[in-house]
Amino acid sequence: MEHQEISLKNKIEELETITSFLDQLAEAWLLPPALLMSINLALEEAFTNIVYYAYADQATHQIELSISKQGDKLKICLADDGQPYDPTQAKAPDIKLSTEDRPIGGLGIFLIRKIMDNVHYQRDNGYNLLCMEKQISTPN
């Protein structure tokens, strides 16, 4: 099993850190470009949610990102010490609504669940732990 991790601050600019971290990983692990885009997207949505909604204070917090590859399966986990929040319980938007009736927003978590094969959440010792799995061979 191969494993990489990185510690991020709860600043939205860290999305750039995530992108370059993934670029390096994709090169080292020979991940296909379409898969790289999918995991970048899922991580952007999950990380953005944490930065914008997890913390009521103005303090700097650390968010831990870890990615492991076992066989042809990628497992991507984010751990944050913010308020408890389970994205797997978020209500899915109605994507059949007309332009006029479609609410603005609410797509981020929905996209994570569409893109990834498996999304799992647990609250563990004061941390939100969100893990997302994706088969490398799955067509994107």
Partner: peptide, 18 residues
């Protein structure tokens, strides 16, 4: 590349123009 924040702008523009 596009994420939900970009999609949101497409929808805003569509709503406004409609």
């Amino acid at each position: 590349y596009i994420s939900s924040s970009g999609l949101r702008v497409f929808l805003l523009a569509q709503k406004k123009l409609r």
